[in-house]
Amino acid sequence: MTDFTKLPAEERARLYWRENLRLITTLIVIWFMVSYVPVLLVNQLNNIVIGGFPLGYYMGSQGSLVVFVVLIFYYAFAMNRLDQKYGLGDRDR
């Protein structure tokens, strides 16, 4: 396994940034899927009722919000791991 912390600084920065962009893109796609897409499909989703909640309404009022919170904490967690992988954490200064 490559030790990424030993790579030359420029190479490290490039690879780190590429992984970061990939992560950001993935999370933004999920963000879009839980907020914009359910709005487009709201009438179909409203036919599904769970616990009294029509699903289309639920996604707008609470469902998407839960995913938003999880996405941000996941990003913080994943980026801390990425910082360490490339030796770019605050302890590595």
């Binding site: 999370l27 309404y57 707008g60 998407s64 919000l65």
Partner: peptide
């Protein structure tokens, strides 16, 4: 009703962009 949910999602979903970007 439902139309007001644009505010609920809008004023929270922005934080995802803030965090990532």
């Amino acid at each position: 009703g439902y139309d007001g949910l644009a505010y609920i999602m809008g004023w929270t979903g922005g934080y995802v962009l803030l965090a990532l970007l």
